[in-house]
Structures are given as C-alpha cells and as structure tokens.
C-alpha cells in the first residue's frame, strides 16, 4: 500500500458517501444516471470474485464489501424506493450502456492476464469501469445545471483513478517486476474521459458559478 493508492481509495469511498448523502438527504436521484450505477455494481461484482478465495488484508476485504454493498444498494434504491425513483431522469438517461458491457467483455476475452474465468472477469471489470461513467457524463450534459453533490460525486470518482495512476507510477519505480498494463492503460483512458468535466468543474469553482456542462 502507498499513499497514492490509499488517497485514491479514500476518494473513491468519498464519492460513494457523497452519492449516498445526496440520495438519502435530498431523497432524490435527479441528475444521477442509473445506468452508470448499474455498470459500477457490475464492475465490483465482476472484480471481487476473489473476495472469499484470496485474502489480501482486512482493509482490502472490508473495502470490497463496502463497494459491493453500496453500489448494489444505490441501484436498488434508484429502482425500488418509491420516493427516490420518482426523481430519476429516465427520459434523459438513455445511453445504450449494453454496448459498453458487450465491448468490455469482448475485449476481456481477447486481452487478459490469463485465460481463466476469474482473470477474464477481472479484465472485464477494469475495461467496464473505464467507460462506466459515460452515461453519467451524457446525463449531466443533457440535464444542464448540475447540483453540488452530483458535481462532487463525479469529481471524486474521476480523481480517485488519477491517484491510482500515480500509484502505478510509484510501484513501477519501487517494485522490481511490477506490470499492471491492463489496469494502467484502462485507468489512463478512464481519467481522460473526465478531462472536460474537470475543466468545467475547475471553471465553475474558480468563478464560483454553477457547474454547467455544454451540451
């Protein structure tokens, strides 16, 4: 574990806490893409198949459980909770995320660390996570002004993988045979997708204006 990865995990956790706060405090999920939340739930379920077979550390196990439980709870809440689901922007959240699923799985079959069930699902989760934010970014562009909590949610979600890139650079230089090319390249793509969001987020923060993504 290094400071970059720990900071990244804490930002990831923060993004989930901010999203939970928004949904439970405002009893609303307006501006949140259910499709992105469904993709994230799949990312964690596919990535943590080793939850009960490979014990890394208490921290690792607890965080995996937190990510799985929170992501499925958010999907459940947006689909089933009578109050919350009324505020879901169904007509705006129209990104065809099944293509992202299919493309990620196809790529995982071709590019993986080992052609085993667990490794293919691990690579699938890495590729899927890189593109999972797309429905959310499209929804933000369509829904015009973005409320603060939603903006902070997306910001922390983007920042966490940027810290993981620093973590990979650090591990590359400090560990002899460190090679996580699948995660590294996918993480770079993932962070790049947030580039324009980060730009407009910075502008809104600098000018102290409402965050607005151009359509």
């Amino acid at each position: 574990m290094n400071i970059f990865r720990f900071a990244g995990d804490m930002m990831h956790l923060t993004s989930i806490l901010v999203l939970l706060l928004k949904i439970y405090a405002t009893k609303s999920c307006s501006g949140i893409s259910l499709k992105t939340q469904e993709l994230y739930a799949l990312v964690f379920l596919a990535r943590y198949l080793d939850l009960f077979t490979d014990f890394i550390s208490v921290y690792n196990t607890i965080m995996k459980l937190v990510f799985i439980v929170s992501s499925t709870a958010i999907v459940w809440c947006m689909k089933r909770d009578r109050v919350v689901r009324r505020s879901y922007d169904k007509q705006l959240d129209t990104f065809r995320h099944y293509f992202l699923l299919a493309a990620s799985f196809a790529l995982a079959l071709l590019v993986n660390e080992k052609f085993t069930f667990q490794e293919i699902f691990w690579a699938f989760s890495i590729y899927l996570e890189a593109v999972a934010i797309l429905p959310q970014l499209v929804l933000l562009q369509r829904s015009g002004n973005v409320d603060n909590l939603t903006g902070q949610y997306v910001f922390f979600l983007g920042a966490y993988r940027a810290f993981y890139i620093l973590n990979w650079i650090y591990r590359y230089f400090t560990e002899t045979h460190f090679s996580r090319w699948i995660a590294c390249i996918s993480g770079l793509v993932q962070t790049a997708l947030y580039a324009d969001f980060f730009y407009y987020y910075y502008i809104s923060w600098k000018n102290n204006t409402k965050l607005k993504l151009p359509a």
């Binding site: 995990d9 990535r47 080793d50 690792n60 995996k64 990510f67 691990w122 993981y164 996580r180």
Partner: peptide, 10 residues
C-alpha cells in the same frame, strides 16, 4: 510467483 498473481488493488 503466486503472490503477484493476486490482484492486491481494489
């Protein structure tokens, strides 16, 4: 080695 086979990152 077996160790590095495991994905130790979240």
């Amino acid at each position: 080695t077996e160790e590095e086979e495991k994905h130790d990152e979240l």
